[in-house]
Simulated assay, not measured.
Amino acid sequence: MNSKFQPNAIPAASFGIGEVVRHRLLDFRGVIFDVDPEFDNTEEWYQAIPEKIRPAKNQPFYHLLAENAESSYVAYVSQQNLVRDEEGEPVDHPAIASLFEAFDGARYTLRREHRH
Score class of each variant (00 low, 15 high):
Asn58Lys: 13
Pro90Cys: 08
Ser72Tyr: 04
Glu113Met: 09
Ala56Gly: 14
Ser14Phe: 05
Ser14Val: 10
Leu25Gly: 05
Leu65Ile: 09
Tyr76Arg: 06
Ala95Ser: 14
Pro60Leu: 03
Ile53Phe: 02
Glu113Ser: 08
Ala12Asp: 12
Tyr76Leu: 06
Leu64Cys: 11
Arg22Ile: 14
Phe61Pro: 00
Leu25Ile: 12
Phe28Val: 03
Glu70Cys: 05
Glu86Ile: 10
Lys57His: 06
Gly30Val: 03
Ala102Pro: 04
Asn41Met: 11
Phe61Thr: 00
Ser78Leu: 09
Gln59Glu: 12
Glu67Val: 07
Lys57Thr: 12
Val77Glu: 07
Asp36Lys: 14
Val31Arg: 00
Ala95Arg: 13
Ser71Met: 06
Ala12Gln: 13
Phe5Ile: 15
Arg84Lys: 15
Glu101Ile: 05
Pro50Leu: 04
Gly105Arg: 10
Asp36Pro: 04
Phe15Ser: 00
Gly30Met: 09
Asp85Arg: 02
Arg29Glu: 04
Pro90Leu: 12
Gln79Cys: 05
Glu67Ser: 12
His93Lys: 02
Gln59Trp: 03
Phe61Gln: 00
Ser72His: 06
Tyr108Val: 00
Asn2Asp: 13
Asp36His: 07
Val74Cys: 10
Phe103Ala: 09
Ala12Arg: 11
Lys4His: 14
Leu99Glu: 08
Ser3Asn: 09
Glu113Lys: 13
Leu65His: 01
Val21Lys: 02
Gly16Thr: 10
